[in-house]
């Protein structure tokens, strides 16, 4: 009897607390979300079954959804490549034995641990067109600073800028971890073969960092797709919807337009996008990621 208990019951008892929470607040909502998305519902009156109308409306009839997708994609382009390049460069600099490098690592990490709301307000002040720090400094250089959050063209880049600033310290620490795993001998062998710094970077460092890059990329994409805090605090999705991003749009459809079904449909599409992206990245990664370290 004790053996039976040990073998068949204990594992389930151990995972029970975690699994209950995962199921109740994780998996059931995913199913419910799909169910809600098949209805027209304002959260208050009875739901009306409309099959896939909410989904069709997103793509066929007039909807902000295409614009929101475009914004989100543009935001990803503005944010992801610079973050990767800058954090990798920083990591390379910080592993070469520079004076005070541990202090620097700590400092670069700080923006990451500070609440996004703080960061948002801080940058809203810094990017204030008239009396903000950035436009003042640009003015010193003879450049007329843009309107940032007040400009249709500059609001989204401003969000990207903040987000890059917040993230590089964290991602460079990830890269430092990756760099430390590269065996020193590989560089020594390459040096004997007469390889210069650039060659070493291209033929050793980057390939051997590719699993870190994959990880960084996946995190960045999930983060970009689920961005809410910055548009919610800084721009309310404006001006003229230029910073309306996916999750903010879900929030707007749900709690401003009271279109529960439509909001749930967008959630479901977002969720599918996340899954497809993550799974395909891990699949594709067999082609470009080197795991042999």
């Amino acid at each position: 009897m004790k053996r039976f208990y040990e073998k068949h019951l204990v594992p389930y008892l151990l995972i029970l607390p975690a699994m209950t929470l995962v199921v109740v607040f994780g998996l059931i909502p995913v199913v419910q979300n799909v169910e809600i998305s098949l209805h027209k519902w304002n959260f208050v009156t009875q739901k009306t079954y409309v099959a896939f109308k909410n989904y069709k409306d997103l793509f066929t009839s007039y909807s902000l959804f295409p614009k929101v997708i475009k914004n989100t994609f543009f935001y990803a382009l503005l944010k992801i490549p610079p973050t990767i390049i800058l954090s990798l460069s920083l990591a390379l600099l910080l592993t070469k034995g520079v004076f005070g490098q541990n202090v620097f690592r700590g400092l670069f990490f700080v923006p990451w641990i500070v609440p996004t709301v703080n960061i948002a307000f801080l940058w809203m002040y810094i990017l204030e067109p008239e009396y903000g720090l950035v436009n003042f400094l640009l003015g010193k250089l003879g450049i007329l600073g843009p309107g940032w959050f007040y400009s249709v063209n500059w609001a989204l880049p401003a969000l990207g800028l903040i987000s890059i600033w917040k993230g590089i310290g964290y991602f460079s620490v990830l890269y430092i971890g990756g760099l430390q795993n590269i065996p020193q001998e590989m560089y020594e062998v390459a040096e004997i073969d007469g390889a210069g710094p650039l060659k070493k970077l291209v033929y050793i460092t980057l390939p051997l960092l590719s699993s870190t890059t994959l990880f960084v990329l996946v995190i960045l994409v999930i983060e970009t797709i689920t961005e809410f805090d910055l548009p919610a605090v800084l721009t309310d999705g404006g001006p003229a919807n230029s910073t309306n991003l996916l999750v903010y749009y879900i929030y707007q459809r749900a709690f401003n337009a009271f279109q529960g079904g439509s909001a749930a449909a967008i959630s479901t599409v977002t969720l599918v996008m996340l899954l497809i992206f993550t799974i395909s990245q891990f699949r594709l990664s067999t082609k470009w990621v080197h795991y042999e370290i």
Binding site: V152, D236, G238
Partner: peptide, 8 residues
């Protein structure tokens, strides 16, 4: 005329 739009 001067406008500011699109912020909280």
């Amino acid at each position: 005329a001067r406008v500011y739009a699109g912020t909280v």
